[in-house]
Simulated scan of single mutants.
Amino acid sequence: MGIHKMFVSRPCNLNGDAAVTGDDAGVTPGLLRTRRPLGMIESSFVSHASDARLPAPIARSPLNKLLTIVMPTYNMEAYLSGALDSILACKRADRVEALVVDDGSTDATPRVIATFEQKAPNVVRGVRKENGHYGSAVNRGIAEAAGDYVKVVDSDDWVDGDALDELLAFLESAGEVDLVLSDYVRVFEDCEEPVSVADIPPRKVLPFSDVRLRPCIMHAITYRRDVLRKSGLRLDEGILFTDDEYALFPMAWVSTLAYVPEPVYRYRLGRAEQSVSPENLERTLADNWQVTQAVMAWRRSLAARGVQPANLAYVNEKCAAIAYEHIRRRLLSSDAEQGRRVTRELEAFLTDDVGIAPADLERHVRFLRATGYAGWGVLAAYKKRRAKG
């Protein structure tokens, strides 16, 4: 699936340190140099024959779901079984709707989905649609979600069953809460990196205005379904990186939140075909810029929409994180002229719309300002050397 997995050039070094960039720079990593549990990560390969018949549809019990896990997928036959098995391992799986949105897969993904619908008909539900890329699959999942809460899990990632149980237990007892944050683990080829996403009292429903959050990424977020619909969220379709929109746009309308300090989400990094791999940086730059422009336009639209000050403060910080991430990508790209032009535009957005004083901009942007952008080549060369390790 073409998803926004943050660009990490050196995930874990020999000292146990990690290079954390992009949105993850706002969270607190606690490093564990442990080998990944292969049994939970790799799924069995489902053979595909053109004349094989899919299992027949079966009757389902009436839905009474606490949480819908929307799982967008495209040609993920090698990973999807592992993702679904991890949900079924949860003791409270009967309270979960695992809604798998197949974005027009051409491999054996439809057979995997059908097999799990037979295996767990009251948990797993598949929806097949024409290919429209990640945003369209998430949009469809939100529109069809039956749960009171919604969490997006990519089909090449998975969840920790025990941690998911803890999240569900909290959701059952908490009453209505607009946003629930939980921790996640960044999984590399040779090590794991747990990430703590908040420093607030755990398992307590709090007014959004009473806390100061670091910018969150999708993997930490569970929204109340009604908040998603109230926000009018509709992700851009046909492009990558729209998980930034998902993690940002509804935040303007969150009134209450809670934090469950359990590593629910297992976030796989390191596959060469991912949209954030170094090999794909140039290819995906236009999509990342399109989403960044959408974020800029959305932020400018908030002036007339009555967003509360605390929400606006969070929005500004998240918008800044997205802008800085795109600038970093431009510094690693080959088109210096376009990089300078786009970065000037983002600098104006950060100062004029987000309200960051020039002296408080990130240091690489301050350096470019101080040199009248003549220092682009030097800074870009430095960033590229760092990215290569």
Rank of each mutant, 00 (worst) to 15 (best):
K5I: 12
F7L: 05
G16W: 03
T28C: 04
T28M: 03
T34M: 14
I41L: 13
S43I: 11
A52D: 15
P57Q: 06
S61H: 04
N64G: 15
L67C: 00
Y74W: 02
A78S: 09
D94R: 12
R95L: 05
V100K: 12
V101A: 02
T106V: 10
T109A: 08
R111S: 13
R111V: 04
E130T: 14
E130C: 09
Y149R: 09
D157H: 06
W158S: 14
D160V: 02
A163E: 02
A169S: 15
A174P: 14
L179G: 04
S182W: 07
V185K: 02
E193W: 04
V195M: 10
R212H: 05
I221V: 05
R225V: 00
R225D: 07
L228A: 02
L228Y: 10
G232N: 02
R234K: 13
I239V: 14
D244L: 11
S255M: 12
T256R: 09
T256I: 00
A258T: 10
E262R: 14
R268K: 11
L269S: 12
Q274S: 10
E282R: 14
T284S: 05
A286H: 05
A304V: 15
G306N: 09
A310G: 10
N311H: 05
N311L: 06
L312F: 13
V315D: 07
A320P: 10
A336T: 15
F349H: 10
L350W: 01
D352L: 00
D360Q: 09
L368H: 01
A374Q: 11
R386A: 08
G389S: 13
